Simulated assay, not measured.
Amino acid sequence: MKLHPDVQFEPQLKPNAWEQLKQFTDARIALGRAGGSLPTRPALAFQLAHAEAKDAVLKKLDIALLEQQLSALQHKMLHVQSDAADKDVYLKRPDLGRELSEESRLQLKQYAQQHPAAYDVLIVAGDGLSARAIEDNAPYFIQQFYTVCHEQNWSVAPLVIAVGSRVALGDEIASILRAKMLVMLIGERPGLSSPDSMGIYYTWQAQKGCHDAMRNCISNVRPAGLPVQVAIQRLVALMRKSCALGVSGVHLKDEHEMESIENQPLRPKKLF
């Protein structure tokens, strides 16, 4: 004996009235329905997005690829490793991702002793929670940002590529290399529509023990998010104001007017 009658749904696909709004967002809206279920196409798209997000988190940073893409800059590069020896440890122990390994700390100190000059700017590119974000976005960002640094007459420290990194890992690196301004590029936690999102964290006079209130963050830097040119405009405006005030973080507000990028060249598909 059945307590409830069977519900029969029509088998054909039923479109959603909000379909026209999908052109304005990557959010999963207006998916339609087939009977009482999700249509096959959006169901498979969701599974693909979930797999891409997991792959972004678990993927190892391809240092050789980064070196190849950045070789045209002819700029010194250093490689460091956090205390998180592998991806499994990195995900389970966030604290270890904020600490340099002893070998990397010694390497940086030796380099600093051999090159005692101080720097205005240090760029650290760390894999974070999406190595893909760094591989896809960091080379083009660094190329464009170096040009701006030279225009501002800022001296730039060797580029540091960090594996197993959290945001705070850059603080000790900047302190050892005596850099006034730290620009930390890191792969952000992937969303189901953004496995390639890169974050930029800026800190004035960074040193070990800095807390998040001392940093400025520019998030979602990627082709489908915040364009590189806009991110650089915002970052440089913050850095110039930081130099004048000697602060960063909650005491430094982004109040500049955004310049138009409509007439600037599009980002090339192949960087170098």
Rank of each mutant, 00 (worst) to 15 (best):
V89Y: 02
V89E: 15
Y90F: 15
Y90I: 02
Y90N: 09
Y90C: 07
L91N: 14
L91K: 13
K92P: 00
K92N: 14
R93Y: 15
R93L: 09
R93N: 13
P94N: 13
P94F: 06
P94W: 09
P94T: 13
P94L: 02
D95Q: 14
D95W: 10
D95E: 15
L96F: 15
L96H: 14
G97R: 03
R98K: 13
E99G: 01
E99H: 08
E99D: 04
S101D: 15
E102W: 10
E103I: 12
E103K: 14
E103A: 15
S104N: 02
S104A: 11
S104F: 01
S104G: 05
S104D: 07
R105L: 13
L106G: 02
Q107D: 09
Q107M: 14
Q107G: 03
Q107W: 06
L108V: 10
L108F: 07
K109S: 06
Q110T: 12
Q110S: 13
Y111D: 08
A112F: 02
A112K: 03
Q113R: 14
Q114P: 08
Q114T: 12
H115V: 10
P116R: 04
A117V: 07
A118G: 09
Y119E: 03
Y119I: 03
D120A: 00
D120P: 04
D120H: 07
V121P: 00
V121I: 14
V121A: 01
L122M: 05
L122N: 04
L122D: 02
L122A: 10
I123V: 12
I123E: 00
I123C: 01
V124H: 02
V124P: 01
V124S: 00
A125Q: 04
A125E: 01
A125I: 07
G126I: 03
G126Q: 05
G126S: 07
D127R: 11
D127Q: 12
D127I: 11
D127Y: 12
